[in-house]
Simulated assay, not measured.
Amino acid sequence: MPGTYTDDAQMTLAIAEVLLSGEPWTLRRLAARIVQVYHRDPHDGYAPRFQQLLGDARDGDELLERLIPDNDKSGAAMRAAPVGLLPSVADVLHHTGVQARITHNTLAWVEAAQAVALAVAAVSRSAEYGQDLPDSLVCMA
């Protein structure tokens, strides 16, 4: 339906807003922005329990306190793209790891999110930038 978007798009917006704001890149700050963006425009599309949690949470601290970050879906990877625009591979890896741990705090899902962000980094930079990327992504640069 025109004008609608997914929960992943809404959380990507929250991630991008924190990046653009220059606010501290912490679990607490990211969680706070996710709650803020949800309350600004609540809509269906989230997993029912997570939507209820977001609706009930007053702030990021409450979200983190009540959330069990062992989700086995791809949400952390789906919202990682804006982080791939950061200036260095180290920044991309660090920032993506932090944002992923909000909901997907397992090594496999953190690495999946990092792979997405690195792919964005690879295609958004010159070929010489690709030399700092893992071999599996250099071909994308």
Rank of each mutant, 00 (worst) to 15 (best):
D91E: 09
D70R: 06
R79Y: 02
L67K: 04
G130I: 06
A112Q: 11
V123F: 09
L86K: 09
L85M: 10
V89G: 08
E17I: 05
W109E: 01
F50N: 06
R101A: 13
H43M: 00
A108D: 14
A80Y: 06
T106Q: 12
S124P: 00
A117Y: 03
D72N: 09
V35W: 06
L93Y: 02
A119N: 10
A32E: 15
D135R: 06
S126M: 02
L19M: 14
V120M: 11
S136P: 03
T6G: 03
P134G: 14
E111F: 02
P134Y: 06
L107I: 13
A100N: 04
Y5F: 15
L27H: 10
D44A: 03
G75W: 01
V138M: 08
L20T: 09
I15R: 14
Y38D: 07
T12F: 02
A115E: 05
T103G: 04
D132I: 00
T4Q: 09
V120N: 10
E62S: 10
L107V: 14
L19C: 12
G130C: 13
Y129W: 04
E62C: 12
I102A: 04
L19G: 04
T96R: 02
E128I: 07
L54P: 11
H94R: 15
A119K: 08
D132E: 10
L54R: 00
D135L: 14
V120F: 04
T103Q: 15
H94E: 13
G3L: 05
L19W: 14
S136G: 04
A47L: 15
A90C: 08
